[in-house]
Amino acid sequence: MSFTDRLSAMGITLPDAPAPAANYVPFVRSGDLLFVSGQISAGPDGMMVGTLGADASLEQGVAAARACAISLLAQVKAACGGDLERLDQVVKLTGFVNSTADFHDQPKVINGASDLLAEALGDAGKHSRSAVSAASLPFGVMVEIEGIFRLK
């Protein structure tokens, strides 16, 4: 089953790749590696804002991380000329969680992205990862995730 078919079975249709919000490019390819700029937590209803440990729940953070993963895949698809099947491996994710100093479940939040990628991509979705706290993120979003991908 193709990656697109798996996503469809999960009820996910990739949106158009989000445009950069400042002076940077959404991705850079170097050889067979694709470096995707940080994708913020936004969905069809807008930005997913809040601070974990204050006014946002763990469940909301997990949903925000899933939204970031969907945006990451949309960027990969755009970088591959619309052919997501050119993705070979998710290599590394770095996840930033807008959270209070006493919130310690950043890995559980970023699991929202990791779980989605593993389910949608199988072994190609398994990756190395960092999950860190941030005192603030752009636009007050809950999560931002950047990724490194290997292409065929």
Rank of each mutant, 00 (worst) to 15 (best):
M1I: 09
S2W: 09
F3S: 13
F3K: 11
D5T: 14
D5M: 11
R6A: 10
S8C: 08
S8M: 03
A9Y: 04
M10H: 06
I12H: 10
I12W: 11
T13S: 15
L14S: 06
L14M: 09
L14D: 04
P15A: 13
A17S: 15
P18R: 12
V25F: 03
P26F: 09
F27Y: 12
F27W: 13
V28P: 01
V28M: 11
S30N: 11
G31S: 12
G31V: 11
L33Y: 07
L34I: 02
F35T: 08
F35Y: 15
V36G: 01
V36H: 05
S37K: 07
G38Y: 08
G38M: 08
Q39I: 04
Q39H: 06
I40Y: 08
A42W: 00
A42P: 03
D45P: 01
D45A: 10
M47C: 13
M48I: 15
M48W: 05
V49Y: 05
G50F: 04
G50K: 00
T51L: 05
T51A: 05
T51C: 13
T51G: 07
G53V: 06
D55Y: 09
A56W: 03
S57F: 01
L58F: 09
E59A: 11
V62K: 04
V62D: 02
A64V: 06
A64F: 03
A64H: 03
A65F: 02
A67W: 00
C68D: 03
A69G: 09
I70R: 00
L73G: 08
Q75V: 13
Q75D: 12
K77F: 07
A78Q: 07
A78P: 05
G81T: 08
R86D: 07
R86M: 04
L87A: 08
L87C: 05
D88I: 04
Q89A: 14
V90G: 00
V91E: 02
K92D: 01
L93F: 02
F96M: 14
F96P: 03
V97S: 08
N98G: 05
S99K: 03
D102T: 15
D102H: 12
D102K: 13
F103H: 11
F103N: 05
H104P: 06
H104D: 14
H104V: 13
D105N: 14
D105P: 04
D105W: 08
Q106R: 13
Q106F: 08
P107H: 11
K108C: 11
I110Q: 00
N111P: 02
N111S: 07
G112E: 00
S114I: 03
D115E: 09
L116Y: 05
L116K: 01
L117E: 01
L117R: 02
A118S: 15
A118V: 14
E119R: 12
E119W: 04
G122Y: 04
A124V: 06
K126T: 14
H127M: 15
S130G: 07
A131R: 03
A131K: 01
V132W: 09
V132Q: 14
A134D: 12
A135G: 15
A135H: 11
L137V: 10
F139E: 14
F139T: 12
F139L: 15
V141H: 01
V141C: 12
M142N: 12
M142E: 12
E144P: 05
E144L: 10
I145R: 01
G147W: 02
I148G: 00
F149H: 08
L151S: 09
K152I: 07
K152E: 07
K152P: 11
